[in-house]
Amino acid sequence: MKIVIAIIQPHKLEAVKKELYKVEVNLITVSPVLGHGKQKGVNEVYRGVKEVGNFLRKVRLEIAVNDNFVEPTIKAIVKGAKTGKIGDGKIFVYPLERCIRIRTEEEGSAAIG
């Protein structure tokens, strides 16, 4: 099992969700985060004072999958989030040792879906 963590543009969330549903990845956890990458951040102006390089709003996806779902998940995220411009985001994959469904206390691959 793996945990896939992706940092994407907030306005791409709907598109990514749709692509993930298409490959039958239905368990997604989403949180708003701030980040900096190669994009230099946005400029905001308050009462004439420019604040340069503020953190950018991003959305963080966290998806636990069985090993055979890793590739489809990555492909779906890329398909939904890619514009080709700086700021599209990153995908990280970690090994996941255990997964437990709280309701039934099932463990492992059966619990993940």
Binding site: N43, E44, R57
Partner: peptide
């Protein structure tokens, strides 16, 4: 997609942190 606050006025209503 990014929103009118940032693109038209260069300010945002709510901070995340």
């Amino acid at each position: 997609e990014i929103g009118l606050d940032l693109t038209q006025h260069q300010e945002v209503a709510y901070t995340v942190l």
